[in-house]
């Protein structure tokens, strides 16, 4: 399909949206240090969509926090040449004292966008997530799916080249999640942003990503990665998605089983 090819060709420009090199992270506790991430090396190319997949305790959220700059690695380095990455959480994290539009405008303001341009830009971003009429809506007046779309618009307002997503759809119902998958794919292709998406849902990972990276647990290490050669737009029910999901799930279960053996 033509669009898929264009996407791949965009990447001819050398560089990376994120370069994670030999990153380790341990947290100090009363019983000594606990290693959470062990020697993670991962590049995200400009415009690439990568999902980080793993069971509980694989440190995937920790890794995302490190890339977002909310925490520092114990060892190794992280580069994000496109500036401070945008981050979306499982909870929408929209500020309830602001309207949907003003939430986006706050992000624009903190980015340094002049006041005169903020309103127009906020409305453009709301249009992008198909919430054109929601500018003046309060957060509590929006449904769960709408809140996550506003959160997506706010993240995009940072104009970062890298969008980090920490299980952003985990709390949504299946129908809404499905629609948001389509929406995210569309927006990713329209904006050419790079996405690093964390999930424990194998099918979601395969549905969305160009590359799926499987992390082992305790400590988190890169166990294996897959390139997903299925044309977009995909459906979560597609046979190709299901087949790859089965293969990845097998591997994931293998990783989990190792923890029961000692």
């Amino acid at each position: 399909m033509a669009t898929t090819l264009t996407k791949a060709e965009d990447r001819t420009a050398v560089g990376h949206a994120a370069r994670i090199a030999h990153v380790s992270k341990s947290f100090g506790g009363p019983e000594g240090q606990q290693l959470v991430l062990d020697d993670i090396t991962l590049d995200v190319a400009p415009g690439e969509f990568v999902t980080l997949l793993g069971a509980s305790g694989c440190g995937k959220s920790t890794l995302l926090n490190l890339v977002a700059g909310l925490d520092r690695p114990t060892a190794g380095s992280i580069e994000t040449p496109g500036g401070r990455p945008a981050l979306m959480f499982q909870e929408h994290a929209l500020f309830p004292w602001l309207t949907a539009g003003k939430n986006i405008e706050l992000a624009l303001r903190l980015r340094g966008v002049p006041k005169s341009e903020r309103r127009t830009e906020a409305e453009r971003l709301l249009e992008l997530v198909r919430l054109g009429g929601a500018y003046g809506k309060r957060v509590h007046e929006l449904s769960g799916g709408m809140r996550q779309r506003v959160a997506m618009a706010r993240a995009l307002a940072q104009d970062s080249q890298l969008l980090l997503m920490d299980e952003p759809f985990a709390a949504l119902d299946a129908i809404t999640r499905d629609v948001l998958h389509d929406e995210l794919t569309r927006i990713w292709r329209e904006t050419n942003v790079s996405v690093l998406f964390v999930t424990h849902n194998v099918r979601e990972a395969v549905r969305l990503a160009e590359r799926v990276v499987l992390l082992s647990s305790r400590p988190g290490r890169i166990a294996r990665e897959w390139t997903v050669d299925i044309e977009q737009p995909r459906r979560i029910e597609d046979n190709a998605v299901a087949e790859l999901s089965v293969e990845i799930t097998e591997q994931l279960r293998g990783e989990i089983r190792r923890h029961g053996q000692h």
Partner: peptide, 26 residues
């Protein structure tokens, strides 16, 4: 096309429907 995917217009309509169903009435 590899799949019977949703066309962009269908997606917009679907989303508008979901929003209308889920939106909180104040």
């Amino acid at each position: 096309m590899a799949s019977t995917d949703t066309k962009p217009d269908d997606l917009a309509g679907l989303e508008a429907g979901l929003d209308a169903l889920d939106a909180v009435q104040v």
